[in-house]
């Protein structure tokens, strides 16, 4: 029982990050119909930049968070303005997806220059005794990760459903032609979607690094896992990515715990193949809605 709970919580922790990356995929996908395969890099940027400000420059915690998020938002903004915006008019989706891969390689290269190949970490947000529930040991940072993820999800939900700006963004993703005729500047909304998805990736990175460490090349695998989370729930569906992310995290953790840790990464790939073969619209998605999408 204690072992099961232990695996469950470790699954929820990694699942949180997958969910955040998955949500990032969805937000960009909804506004542009492209897959931003640099999504995972923003988690790495979050972790490494946080280390840089907190440990490298000895800045206070809150300042470091603010600066890290600023960096992530700036990178996302530059990425969209320099690579996506010029290509969006041509509408070649495959080309744009390739460009996001190029950007991810570039980011990875720059991070390697700056940080080298070592893993980095910093102390948990709060020091203190871990919680013990039925013999399972849950560190406080685990609670932080899960809590921050939950909070991010709630804020995103409120943003897209309760604020006028969120509604305008949603309108763009539902019907771009009509949105333009409402006077909404679609290009700005696309930029905003990149910034938001960059930010939530970085938030995940900031939270998870004290637990799982962060190194320059973690982004690619995180992109794959996040993508898996997103397609499990049906690409473009916010709630889907959350369920997908947590499910993937838990399955991975159980696989590593009960079978062999070497199989851990295979889980995501197996699920992905399975879904693409049998349920391409995701577990919750309907096939008709998928067919209406451009990609």
């Amino acid at each position: 029982m204690s072992l099961l709970l232990q695996f469950l919580f470790s699954g929820l922790t990694t699942g949180s990050v997958y969910a955040l990356v998955g949500i990032g995929f969805n937000i960009v996908y909804n506004s542009t119909s492209i897959l931003n395969l640099a999504q995972g890099e923003f988690v790495v940027i979050g972790g490494l930049m946080m280390w840089f400000f907190l440990e490298g420059m000895n800045l206070p915690f809150a300042t470091s968070v603010a600066l890290t998020l600023t960096v992530a938002a700036t990178v996302a903004l530059l990425m969209e303005r320099l690579t996506i915006k010029p290509l969006l008019k041509k509408g070649d989706l495959l080309l744009m997806i390739m460009v996001t891969i190029a950007v991810s390689i570039l980011i990875r290269g720059l991070l390697m220059f700056k940080f080298g190949k070592d893993p980095y970490t910093y102390p948990p947000f709060t020091e203190g005794e871990p919680l013990v529930i039925y013999g399972a040991v849950i560190t406080q940072q685990t609670l932080w990760v899960i809590g921050i993820t939950a909070l991010s999800i709630v804020i995103l939900y409120l943003f897209f459903n309760k604020t006028m700006l969120g509604r305008a963004m949603k309108a763009c993703s539902l019907d771009i032609k009509a949105a333009r005729l409402m006077g909404i500047n679609v290009s700005n909304m696309v930029m905003l979607s990149f910034i938001i998805s960059g930010l939530i990736g970085a938030i995940g990175g900031i939270a998870i690094t004290p637990i799982s460490l962060m190194e320059y090349d973690k982004g690619a695998m995180l992109s794959v896992k996040g993508f898996c989370a997103a397609i499990m729930g049906g690409l473009g569906r916010g709630r889907g990515a959350v369920v997908g992310g947590f499910t993937l995290g838990i399955l991975e953790s159980f696989t590593a715990g009960y079978i062999h840790s070497g199989f851990k990464d295979a889980v995501a790939l197996l699920i992905m193949l399975f879904i693409l073969f049998f349920r391409p619209a995701g577990i919750f998605g309907k096939t008709e809605t998928l067919r209406l999408r451009k990609f």
Partner: peptide
């Protein structure tokens, strides 16, 4: 949206 553009952005 057009008539309240700044309102929309602030609401974000």
């Amino acid at each position: 949206y057009l008539k309240y553009e700044t309102g929309f952005i602030k609401s974000g």
